[in-house]
Simulated assay, not measured.
Amino acid sequence: MTKLDRTDARLLLALCDIPRATGVHLASVLGLARNTVQARLSRWDDSHTLAPMDRLVSPRDLGYPLRAYVGAVTDQHRLEAVIDRLRDIAEVTEVVGVSGGADLQIGVSAADADDLYRVAGLILAVPGVERTTVSVVMREAIPYRTRPLIERLARENDNS
C-alpha cells in the first residue's frame, strides 16, 4: 500500500528534474492546477514525506571524505539508550537496526583513517555497545536513490 498516487509520482519526478521549481512552474509543466500542486507539497511537508535538506549535503564537501559502516553488537536491554548516545556523535550519519551478526549498522563519515579510528572508538565506548566491526566504503557503486521506485509508481498507475 502506498500513500502516494500517480499524480504524486509525476510531481516527484518533476522535482527530481527541476528541484528548485516553483509550484506555479510545476503546475504548468504537469498540466495541474496550482492549488493541487500546493496542496500536495503542503501534505508532504506535514507528513515528512520528503527527506530533510541535510540529506542532500555530501559529507565529502564538509571535509569528511572517508565513509564506513560500523556493525555494532549491543546489550539488547540498552538498545534505545545506545541509539540515543549515537545521536551525540556528529560523524554518525545514520543508524539502522538489522538482523544477522550485528544489531545496528552505523554509517559514519570521517576525515581520514586516523579520524575513523577515533570515531570507531567513540562508538565502542558507548555503554551497551559490546563489540564492533568496521567496513570502509571503497566506492559508492549505486548511490541512495528512490527515482526508479517513483517511476514504477507512475507507470503502474497508468494502467488503472
Rank of each mutant, 00 (worst) to 15 (best):
V136D: 02
V82Q: 00
L12M: 05
T74S: 01
L79M: 03
L50P: 04
A81F: 15
L153F: 15
G100R: 08
H25T: 03
Y144N: 08
E156T: 13
M1N: 07
D54F: 11
S58C: 02
T49R: 00
V108C: 01
L122S: 00
A33S: 02
G63F: 15
T2C: 04
W44P: 01
R6V: 03
A125F: 11
I123P: 03
L149E: 14
D158R: 11
Y117T: 12
R78G: 00
I83P: 05
V119C: 05
A120F: 10
V108N: 01
C16D: 15
M53K: 09
L79K: 06
V137S: 00
V96H: 13
D8G: 02
L12I: 09
A110Y: 13
L41S: 05
D114K: 12
V82H: 00
S42Y: 15
L41G: 05
D103M: 03
E151T: 04
V57P: 02
A113Y: 15
R87C: 05
V70Y: 14
R34V: 06
G71F: 12
R147Q: 09
I142H: 14
T49L: 04
A141M: 09
P19R: 10
T49K: 02
V96A: 11
V92A: 01
A21H: 14
A68P: 04
E80V: 00
T7V: 10
V126P: 00
Q105Y: 14
I123Y: 07
D88V: 05
V82R: 01
A111V: 15
R10N: 13
L13A: 01
D17K: 08
R78M: 04
T22L: 06
M138Q: 10
Q105H: 10
R6W: 13
V98D: 04
R147T: 11
G63H: 13
L149A: 10
L122V: 02
Y117V: 10
L11V: 08
L41V: 09
G100C: 04
D46C: 07
V96N: 09
A110C: 05
V57L: 04
G107D: 10
L50C: 07
V96F: 12
Y117I: 10
M138F: 15
A27C: 01
D54V: 07
L12D: 08
V96T: 15
R118L: 06
P65H: 07
V92K: 01
R145W: 12
L104N: 03
N159L: 15
A81I: 12
G71P: 02
S47C: 08
T36M: 06
G23W: 15
L56D: 08
I142M: 13
E80L: 06
N35R: 08
T93E: 10
R155C: 07
S160I: 12
I89F: 09
T2V: 13
A68Q: 07
D112M: 00
Y64W: 14
R145A: 12
R60D: 07
R152N: 02
R145G: 13
A33V: 09
R152V: 05
T7S: 04
E80T: 06
R131G: 05
R155T: 14
Y117R: 12
C16P: 08
L13R: 06
L12R: 03
A110E: 06
A72C: 06
D103Y: 09
